[in-house]
Amino acid sequence: MGEIRNKDGLTEEEFLKQYKPSKYERPSVTVDMLILCMSRYLDNLKVLLIQRKNHPYINCWALAGGFVGIYESTYDAACRELQEETGLVTNTYLEQLYTMSNPDRDPRMRVIDVAYITLMREQPVLAGDDAKKALWFDISLHDDILELKNEEENINIKYCLHKKIFKNGVVDTTGYTQESITDEKLAFDHNEIILEGLLRLKNKILYSDIAFNLLPEEFTLPDVKRVYEVILGKELYKSNFNANIKSKLISTDCKITSMIKGGKKAAGYKYKGQ
C-alpha cells in the first residue's frame, strides 16, 4: 500500500515540511489552581490566594498559577506552579476543572487558562517570586453570596450571584453571573473559577470519595460527617450518613479526639481506598 497523499499530492512528511505555523495567531496558555482545604476545626472550607506584586492587577488577590512551558502539559505546569508559588508538596489531589477562554480575560494578550482544583490539609505556605503574600482565606457560598475573608489581615471579598437559565440543546441549564459588592476584587476571572470549583466539589462528593482528600490519615465519623456538611451546605442525618460511609472505612481499633472544636474521643478510622 502506497503513501497516503492529500488533495495537493503531498505525503504527511512533505505537508509538515512546508507547513507554516505563523499562518494562525497563537494564544498563550496558563494554569491556575483552586487550592482548597478544611479549617483547623472543620468549621469551613479555605482557599489559598496569592497577592500579585506586578501588573496587571497589582496588589490584587488571585489563585496560584502561571504560564505553561512549551514542552509542558498543563498538568505538569500546575504541579510546578504549585511548588514554585506556594512551596506546597505536589503529591496532592489535582483535577482539571475548567477552561477559561473569554478573549478579553487577560489585558496583556490572548490567554487561555486551564483551571485545576487541588484538595489538601491546611499547611503553611510560602509566597513565590511572583507574589507578595500567600494566605488562606475562609470561603463560603450561601444565599447567592460568594465570600472570601482573612480575619488576620482584615480582608473581605464578596460577590453576589445572579442565576441565569440558558438552553444547552434541549436542556435548561443553570449558570451564574457575578457582581462584586466589595471594594476589593479578585484578579482576572478567578472568582468564576472559584465558583465552578465549589459547584464541582458539591456535586462530586455525592458520587465519589473526593472529600477524603480534605481529611488527615486518621479521623472520626463526626469529622467525616462535618466535612460533607460544610461542602453540601446542610446538616445530614447521623444514622443514615454513618451507615452509608462505614463501608468506605477501616477501623483503627483505637479512640482519637475529633477535630471538631470541643470534640470528644471517638473510634478512629482510615479511608479504605478503592
Rank of each mutant, 00 (worst) to 15 (best):
G87D: 07
L88S: 02
L88E: 02
V89R: 02
N91Y: 14
N91I: 11
T92G: 14
T92A: 15
T92Y: 14
T92V: 13
Y93S: 12
Y93Q: 09
L94T: 07
E95N: 04
Q96P: 07
Q96N: 10
L97H: 03
L97E: 02
L97V: 02
L97R: 01
T99Q: 05
M100C: 10
S101E: 12
N102I: 11
N102T: 12
N102E: 13
P103E: 03
D104Q: 09
R105T: 08
D106V: 02
P107K: 13
R108G: 10
M109G: 14
R110Y: 13
V111Q: 08
D113I: 11
V114Q: 03
A115R: 00
A115M: 02
A115H: 00
Y116D: 03
I117T: 01
T118P: 02
L119C: 02
R121W: 06
E122L: 01
E122M: 03
Q123W: 06
Q123K: 13
V125N: 09
V125I: 11
V125Q: 06
V125L: 08
L126E: 15
L126P: 04
G128Q: 06
D129I: 06
D130H: 11
K133E: 13
A134W: 13
A134E: 14
L135T: 08
W136E: 06
W136I: 08
F137T: 00
D138V: 01
D138K: 05
I139H: 00
I139P: 00
S140P: 00
S140L: 00
L141Y: 06
L141I: 05
H142D: 10
D143N: 15
D143A: 09
D144K: 14
D144N: 14
L146I: 10
K149D: 08
K149V: 00
K149I: 02
N150L: 04
E151F: 04
E151R: 07
E151S: 13
E152Q: 13
E152H: 12
E152C: 06
E152S: 12
E153Q: 11
E153S: 08
E153N: 12
N154S: 14
N154P: 01
I155T: 07
I155R: 03
I157F: 01
I157S: 01
I157Y: 00
K158P: 00
Y159I: 11
C160A: 14
C160L: 11
L161I: 04
L161T: 01
L161Q: 09
L161D: 05
H162T: 13
H162Y: 12
K163P: 01
K163E: 11
K164Q: 15
I165P: 00
F166L: 12
K167M: 14
N168G: 03
G169Y: 01
V170M: 10
V170D: 15
V170Y: 06
V170C: 09
V171W: 02
V171P: 00
D172A: 07
T173N: 07
T173W: 05
T174Y: 06
G175Q: 08
G175E: 12
G175L: 04
T177F: 05
T177N: 13
Q178T: 05
E179L: 14
E179G: 05
E179Y: 08
I181M: 13
I181F: 10
I181K: 05
T182V: 08
T182A: 11
D183G: 14
D183V: 08
L186W: 01
L186S: 02
L186V: 00
L186N: 03
A187S: 11
D189G: 06
D189K: 10
D189M: 11
H190F: 09
